[in-house]
Each structure stands twice: as structure tokens, then as C-alpha cells.
Write a protein that binds this DNA or RNA. Structure first.
Length: 876
RNA sequence: GGGCCCGUAGCUCAGUUGGUUAGAGCGCCUGCUUGACACGCAGGAGGUCACAGAUUCGAGUUCUGUCGGGCCCACCA
């Protein structure tokens, strides 16, 4: 078997990425009623390019999916395993990209008709939308590409209409004029979630409103003085001492000719500012409600373009911030400005374009959330859906209990157009699955479709079942719903996960997934968020190529404790690369050997088999619990520290490598979910022709636990470590053969005898073994200079053998060594004292479990033996 | 204002139901071109687990408080 001298993932990763797709390796068959595992990908935006966040999420998902695909039922049957891929049309995000492209041609959206714009957007999608999919394929994610979906596919559009109509017919979707978050740049309403609040340094302007027919005036405080032009009332608290004399009166609104009433309302906090609040029903949601309570008119002074409207009089046409400056200066000139205080306030910004949103009243479509939330809350409360880590359910509940209606309409051109038709005659709205030809009320044919589209998250909310063919009763739907698992970031729990649960419960009558794994964020080495503007992004396309995809995956996963953020640097990735390199080179060594018969098994063989079994156990348990860092760590320790550093080294003096091949093969299977490329490559180099991804995953077998082998091996590790320490301390080069005298009782004598050659070769030793009682001095040492000898008690503190060295060039123990021995002695004395105190404590002996007490006794004996050895060493 | 999380070796972090000298990677020190790998091998240094109490035979792990840091939600002008 040939294998390249250097690990160069670039030479085989693209090949396997293509091969897997061509061979449909990850195609899932739908067998309704049979055991299955299914997971719908969090669909990346079509606008996107693969970033580290995707890479991390996909590494987690892929590890889980590959593991599940390899698992067999207790009867040995494979499980239908589906990872369904797809992309999201990403309403605003995509529209912005297309607008940008148009702008480069000197065009704006309005220059095109809606149809033309949509066509343009589709063209853009065809040209650019496949990019992220190609990148995912190159990264080797094990999706079933035959089931790839896009949220604007005809099938998914049908699901959107079906869901919309059902909700509308149940009265859960309605149209109405309410205060919404309006983005003046995107020219659309936004949901509450699409507004990011950011604290900023602002001011609190105190403005004096003269009371009509009185010398008195009321001072109101505002953070947005430009809205005063739209004031239609002033509220004071009913308990305000001024209430009696001011209540049924008016104030004169400065800079205008309007008089507006003073009303009593508890919204005015006596303790805040001046105790009086201006009411601007058109530009603040609190005021909107207050306006309704007091039947105040609403005057819109800021338009959808964030410029002052005609209603603002001479300020009309000014940008809202320019208007603010002018209004403040005029108020100041006219003496209406009482004072200005610095003030911290939260400014809402559009999460797509960062423009400050304007609260405006407008007619929008809404979804009633309370009735939908109840079953979704229950599903998590009673455990039909569980969060990993469990703490996230609190965040979920917090939001769900306080949920507010969802503004689902967007004034965009890219998205699912709302299936509602307005009658030109009777103005009735007809909501229908199929495009109607006549008004449902008056029968008129003068119908025009609603121009708004749906929030992109509406279609995402249907994703776990719309992708499986819903509303049709398909085999896929019956075979794979509810999906098994959702893996996603905490940032879209509300946007997406919660809405999928609500819509899944409503449309399917069942949860959309049984588990939600919430992963952390990939940050840079300084724990800063990665962003293009900061220039601190680690681009997966670059590092996948430089270090190999396996390396990036492994680096990410070994650092990924559940829910925790990852501080990513190239060192983390290099760690993965180093591991892959190690696997590669270990395989090179192995493949240079004749497999042989594999019939005979040495102690090393039995030991590594037992260790592999332990690693298999940990890996399986860790994957089950989504503890990928633990799985990665277990396979790392097994492969590097045990398989390479001990097993292969010992094996070098063996002629029969058959067993090593068997262990190596199982190790590849064990590693595959974490490092799919290198394991596939090595699997084929071993002569297999089908994908390793479809092989059964190793299972833990209690019968393979070999306590005797592990105990015996520990003994050799102790001997060798002891020798190595001695060599370094006394600067005895490995070229010098050391003579080791060992006396052991019956069974240990045989063990040491049988394995002597391997140890001798490894450390250039000559072992002289004596069979006999462990006490007393070795006869072979009688009469020798004690300076040449150290004594040690080995084997888990049992005095099974004593050990002596003969050092060819006489050297006395160095001071360094003496210091260390002294330190060891001190430490041991402390630990021994502690253990003794514990064991003499009656409460401890009475209350602690037996294994803890026994364990401590064994340890104590071991400590004492070590102490004795150290004392002898010091006396040398 | 409400909620969540974190503070363990120089750095980045593990440490599941409390239990036997607290671990890893990187970095550091000392050796080593040992016939797979210097992306390596061997040996080593380094931690009063933020602080103060409490519970317990026993606390990095549970509880309370303090200090420090981060995140999310919220219509206090």
C-alpha cells in the first residue's frame, strides 16, 4: 500500500467531496414507520458565502448526522438518516444585494416594474445563490442533495399559501393599522425582532408649553423634539398637584398655531423629568395607545422617507435630524426651551441596514401569537422538545410568555406575496389558496393582489415540514417528521426556532423537532465577534484550503463545549491539522508493514484493544449527548497518546501487524464523524471501494474490557517512565544500554518475561529478571555499590517487584534530582496525612460509599510505597 | 427594569449526578535529525479553582452574599 510522504489534504479532499455527491452517498430512503434520524439544515441565506459560523454549525451537524448514519439498531439494521439541505430567500438581505447591483448600473428599484425587479432577483439568485451550496459540498457536509430546497420553490410557496389561509380562516392572521417599526431606507415595516436596540448618548430636551388662558406653562421632556409638531395632547398624572387646576384646559403648541388638550394619564411619571409627557400618537407606540385612550387625533409629521411631511408646516421636506436642529434652535430663540440634559437612550436600528427605524402607524398584516404560543410552550414544558444545554428553555419561556403579535407583512418585492386579493368594487379582501377570479363577497372580477410580501421568517417557520412535501401527505413527511434534531445559534431562537415550534404544532399537530441544540458563536482569538469591518474574520474557504477541512472541523469541535463560544485562531486549526498529520503518518508506518496473519495477540494488542473499546464508549456517549469536544478529546487521546505513542512504538519489535491493522480500521471508523475526508481516503487506501460513511460505527462491548492487560501495561509504563526520567536526569544517552534487574513473583514473572523484548528494544535496556519473593534484595545485586541502584515499588502500589538499575557510567544523583525527590516527599507526606485523617474519621467511614473508601485505601498504600522509594532514592 | 452566562496553569478553555495528588491544547524550560511524523519524540516547570460565608465526613462542583466581565429581552418620555 502506497501512501504519500506528506499529508496534503488538498490532494484528496476535493475528490471525495465530489465523489460523495456523484455517488449519492448521503441519500436517505423514506420508509414510513421505520427508525429514522432527520434534521433540516438552518437554511443559509442565498446571498451568503460560507463563513466560520456556518462551518462550525455544519461541523456539529455533520458529526452528529454521520454518527447517526453509521449507528445500527440493536437488530443490526441501518437507520434512515436524512440531513435535508437548502437555502433561504432572505427577503430584505437579497433585495438589498439586487438593489446594489442595480445601483451600479445607475438604476433604482423604482426604475423597474415589480415584475422586472423580481425577474432580476431570480436571475441574481441563479447566478449567485449556488455559491454557498457549492462551498458546503466542498466542505463535505453529508446532506442529501437530491432533496435540496429553496424557500421560494413552488412547493414551498404552496405550503406558505396553505399556512397563511389556514391561519387567516382561524382568525389568527388579521390586517390592521398599528404602530410599526418602519425602516426608511428599506421602505418596509419590520417586526420587533428585526430592530436592534443600541444605547447611545442623546439629550433630553425640556420644552415649555404655555397653558392657554394662564400665565402657567407645562414643561415636557422629550428625546425627539422634532416629533413635537405632531403632538396632540399633554399628559399629567391624575395625582399631580396641578391636575385640578390644569385638567380641562389646553396648551398652546409652540411653533404651531395649534392648541392641544391636557389629559390625565398615569403614563406620566411624577418622578420623571418634569412630570408631564407630550403625546405624539403618530410617532411613538406608547403615545399611540394614549392617543386612543383619550381620543386624540394623530398627526403624522415624519414620512416613510424619514423626511418631515406637509403637516409639519415650514419644516416640510427636511430630514428628521435636520428638522430637529432647526426646531430646537427656534424653540431656544423663542424662549420655549427650558433646558437640555445629556441622556442615554436606546435607539432602534434596522438589523439589515442599521438605519434608525421610525415608529409609524401603518396598515399591516399581523399574526396573533398568544393562541399559537400556548401549545408551543406546553411542548417544551412537558419535554416533547428538549433544549441542549437545558438552560436555553428559560430564555425560550421568557419570550414565549411575553409574546406579542407578529407583523408579517413587508413592503418588499422579493418574497412570498401575500395570498390576499382586494376587490376594486366592494373593497372586501379575499384570501385564497388559488388565485381567485372573483371577489368572495360581491363577485366582482376587479381583483388586485396584495402587494406586500411575507416576512422571510414566515416561510422559514414552515421549513421542517414544507421541505418534506407538506401540505401533501408524502412518504417523506410520514417517514421523517417530526425531525429528530435542530442545531442552531441562540441568535435565532425567537426568529426561527420558536416560530417553527408554533407553526409545527399548528399545522402538523406535532413538534417540528425533538431536540434543539444551541451552539455558541465563533469569535476571534481575542473573543471579539468576527466581522468584515473589523477585519478579524477567519475565512473557512482560505483555511479549509490551507489546513484541510478535517483540520478546521476538528479544531472547532475539540474546542466546542456545549453552548460555549469558540475563540478561534489559526493555532486552533493547526491543532486539528497536526492531528490529521499524525493520523496520516501513523497510517504510513502501518501500511509499510505486512498485515500478516493477525492471529497472535501480544500484551500490547490486548491493551490497545481495551483502550479502543474505552474510547468507543466515550465517543458514543458524547455524540449522544452532543458533547463533541469530549468525543474529539477521546479520539485524540486514544489515537495519539495510546495508539501512536505506546502501541505503535511497542509494535515495532513485533513481526505480526495483523492486529494493528484491525485496530487501525476500527479507529478510522471511530474518527470518521469528526474527520470525514482523511478517514475516507485511508479507508480506500486500505482497499475498500465503498464509502466508510456507510459502515457501522464501533460499539462498546463490555467483553472487550481487559483489566488484566491494562494493569500489566501500566506496569511497563511505570518501568519505562522510570527509566526515561533517570536517563534525562543523569544525562545518560539512549545509546547506552541500561541493565535493569527485576524480581517478580510467579504471574508477574511470566508477564515481564513474555514482553521483555519489546521494552528492551524501546528504551535500549537489558532486563534481568529474577523469579521469587518480592521482599529482600535482589540476589543479582548482592555486593554491588548501592549508588548504582535505585529501588522502586511498582504495580499500583502492590509490592510485586522491586526494580534496580545498573548505570554504566557511575554518576551520583544530581542536586536537581535530590531537590525534586525532596519535593515529592513533602507532597506525598501531605497527601498521606490527609488520606489517613479521612480514613480515621468515623463519619467518613460510616457515610462514604465503599468504593470511595476502598479506593482511598489502595491509593494510600501506593503513596506510602512511593514515599518509601523516594526515601531510598534520597539516601543514595 | 427583568432574565441568562462566565471568572480554574502565562494564553484559550475542559472538568455530567459533590468523592481518590485538578486536566488538555498552545506557550515556556531541558534533551533528541530514534529507521511514520520537528505539523515530531522523551522529560519537566507552572494552579491557595475571583473573594467571603454556609451546607457536608468530604466542595472547583451545592446554597447565600460581594467584586469583576459578557449576553439577551423590555413601549419609562
Amino acid at each position: 500500500m502506497e501512501i504519500d510522504k506528506v499529508y496534503e489534504p488538498q490532494r484528496f479532499e476535493p475528490h471525495w467531496a465530489e465523489w460523495w455527491v456523484e455517488h449519492n452517498t448521503y441519500h436517505a430512503e423514506a420508509h414510513p414507520g421505520e427508525p429514522y434520524f432527520s434534521l433540516a439544515i438552518p437554511p443559509p441565506n442565498v446571498t451568503g458565502s460560507l463563513h466560520m459560523g456556518h462551518m462550525f454549525e455544519h461541523s456539529i451537524i455533520d458529526a452528529q448526522v454521520r454518527w447517526r448514519r453509521m449507528k445500527r439498531t440493536p437488530e443490526g439494521k441501518s437507520v434512515d438518516t436524512l440531513w435535508l439541505p437548502g437555502t433561504d430567500h432572505a427577503g430584505i438581505a437579497t433585495q438589498i444585494m439586487v438593489e446594489r447591483q442595480l445601483a451600479e448600473e445607475g438604476l433604482s428599484k423604482r426604475d423597474l416594474r415589480r415584475d422586472a425587479f423580481e425577474a432580476r432577483a431570480w436571475k441574481w439568485k441563479e447566478q449567485n445563490g449556488g455559491r454557498i451550496v457549492e462551498q458546503m459540498k466542498r466542505a463535505g457536509v453529508s446532506c442529501d442533495w437530491s432533496r435540496e430546497r429553496f424557500t421560494l420553490d413552488p412547493g414551498l410557496s404552496r405550503a406558505v399559501r396553505e399556512a397563511f389561509v389556514r391561519l387567516y380562516e382561524k382568525g389568527l392572521i388579521y390586517q390592521g393599522d398599528y404602530m410599526v417599526n418602519w425602516c426608511p431606507r428599506c421602505q418596509t415595516a419590520l417586526s420587533d425582532l428585526e430592530v436592534e436596540h443600541e444605547e447611545s448618548e442623546g439629550s433630553l430636551w425640556h420644552i415649555r408649553y404655555p397653558v392657554v388662558g394662564s400665565d402657567e406653562s407645562i414643561v415636557v421632556a422629550t428625546t425627539r423634539p422634532e416629533t413635537m409638531l405632531g403632538d396632540t395632547g399633554v399628559a399629567i398624572n391624575p395625582l399631580d398637584p396641578r391636575a385640578a387646576r390644569l385638567h380641562p384646559r389646553n396648551v398652546k403648541l409652540p411653533l404651531t398655531n395649534r392648541e392641544i388638550p391636557i389629559v390625565l394619564d398615569e403614563m406620566a411619571d411624577l418622578a420623571f423629568g418634569s412630570g408631564a409627557v407630550k403625546i405624539t400618537p403618530a410617532h411613538d407606540s406608547n403615545d399611540f395607545e394614549a392617543g386612543k385612550r383619550h381620543e386624540l387625533p394623530s398627526i403624522q409629521v415624519i414620512g416613510e422617507d424619514a423626511k418631515m411631511t406637509a403637516a409639519s408646516g415650514k419644516f416640510a421636506g427636511l430630514d428628521r435630524y435636520e428638522a430637529r436642529k432647526r426646531i430646537v434652535s427656534e424653540l431656544k430663540e423663542l424662549g420655549y426651551l427650558e433646558k437640555i440634559e445629556p441622556y442615554k437612550l436606546n435607539v432602534g436600528k434596522c438589523h439589515r441596514c442599521k438605519t434608525v427605524v421610525e415608529p409609524l402607524v401603518s396598515k399591516q398584516w399581523w399574526m396573533k401569537m398568544k393562541p399559537l404560543a400556548a401549545p408551543a410552550i406546553a411542548a417544551v414544558e412537558d419535554g416533547r422538545i428538549t433544549f441542549v444545554p437545558a438552560n436555553w428553555s428559560k430564555t425560550y419561556f421568557e419570550w414565549m410568555y411575553n409574546i406579542r403579535d407578529w407583523c408579517i407583512s413587508r413592503q418588499l418585492w422579493w418574497g412570498h406575496r401575500i395570498p390576499a386579493w382586494h376587490c376594486g368594487d366592494c373593497k372586501t379582501v379575499t384570501v385564497a389558496r388559488e388565485t381567485p377570479t372573483q371577489c368572495s363577497k360581491c363577485g366582482s372580477a376587479k381583483l388586485t393582489q396584495e402587494t406586500d410580501v411575507l416576512d422571510t421568517w414566515f416561510s422559514s417557520g414552515l421549513w421542517p415540514f414544507s421541505t418534506l412535501g407538506w401540505p401533501d401527505d408524502t412518504a417523506d413527511l410520514r417517514a421523517f417528521y417530526p425531525t429528530t434534531l435542530l442545531v442552531t445559534g441562540f441568535d435565532i431562537i425567537f426568529f426561527w426556532a420558536a416560530r417553527m415550534i408554533m407553526l409545527g404544532m399548528e399545522m402538523m399537530g406535532d413538534v417540528p423537532f425533538r431536540q434543539i441544540h444551541i451552539h455558541g458563536l465563533v469569535r476571534d482569538a481575542e473573543r471579539q465577534k468576527m466581522s468584515k469591518t473589523k477585519g478579524n474574520v477567519v475565512d473557512p474557504l482560505v483555511v479549509n484550503d490551507k489546513y484541510g477541512t478535517d483540520a478546521v472541523r476538528f479544531g472547532l469541535l475539540v474546542a466546542a463545549a456545549p453552548g460555549n463560544d469558540i475563540a478561534l485562531s489559526e493555532e486552533v486549526i493547526a491543532r486539528g491539522r497536526n492531528f490529521a498529520n499524525k493520523i496520516w503518518n501513523a497510517s504510513r508506518l502501518l501500511f509499510s508493514k505486512d498485515p500478516g496473519a493477525g492471529s497472535r495477540t501480544s500484551l500490547a494488542d490486548r491493551w490497545i484493544n481495551s483502550r479502543l473499546n474505552a474510547a468507543v464508549k466515550t465517543a458514543n456517549e458524547s455524540f449522544k449527548d452532543h458533547r463533541y469536544h469530549e468525543a474529539a478529546d477521546a479520539v485524540w487521546t486514544f489515537f495519539w497518546d495510546e495508539f501512536c505513542d505506546w502501541y505503535l512504538e511497542l509494535k515495532k519489535s513485533d513481526t505480526d501487524w495483523g492486529f494493528a491493522y484491525q485496530v487501525h480500521e476500527r479507529a478510522l471508523l471511530l474518527l470518521h464523524p469528526l474527520m470525514p475526508f482523511i478517514t475516507e481516503e485511508l479507508w480506500h487506501r486500505r482497499g475498500h471501494e465503498t464509502s466508510i460513511a456507510l459502515e457501522p460505527y464501533p460499539e462498546y462491548d463490555p467483553a472487550l474490557e481487559d483489566a488484566a492487560a491494562e494493569r500489566e501495561m501500566r506496569a511497563f509504563v511505570l518501568i519505562l517512565t522510570s527509566v526515561r526520567q533517570r536517563r534525562v536526569e543523569q544525562k545518560i544517552d539512549k545509546k547506552h544500554e541500561l541493565i535493569i534487574y527485576v524480581r517478580a513473583t510467579g504471574e508477574w514473572f511470566d508477564v515481564i518475561q513474555d514482553n521483555a523484548s519489546a521494552i528492551m528494544r524501546l528504551e535500549n535496556l537489558k532486563l534481568e529478571i529474577e523469579n521469587g519473593s518480592p521482599t529482600g534484595r535482589l540476589t543479582k545485586l548482592s555486593g554491588r555499590n548501592s549508588n548504582q541502584v535505585i529501588w522502586g515499588c511498582l504495580f499500583e502500589g502492590q509490592e510485586i517487584c522491586k526494580l534496580g538499575f545498573e548505570i554504566p557510567e557511575i554518576t551520583r544523583p544530581t542536586n536537581d534530582r535530590k531537590d525534586r525527590v525532596k519535593k515529592d516527599i513533602e507532597q506525598l507526606e501531605k497527601v498521606i496525612a490527609n488520606s489517613k485523617r479521612q480514613l480515621e474519621n468515623e463519619s467518613f467511614v460510616a457515610k462514604a460509599p465503599a468504593h470511595v473508601i476502598d479506593g482511598m485505601r489502595v491509593k494510600l498504600a501506593e503513596y506510602e510505597a512511593q514515599l518509601a522509594k523516594n526515601r531510598v532514592a534520597l539516601a543514595e
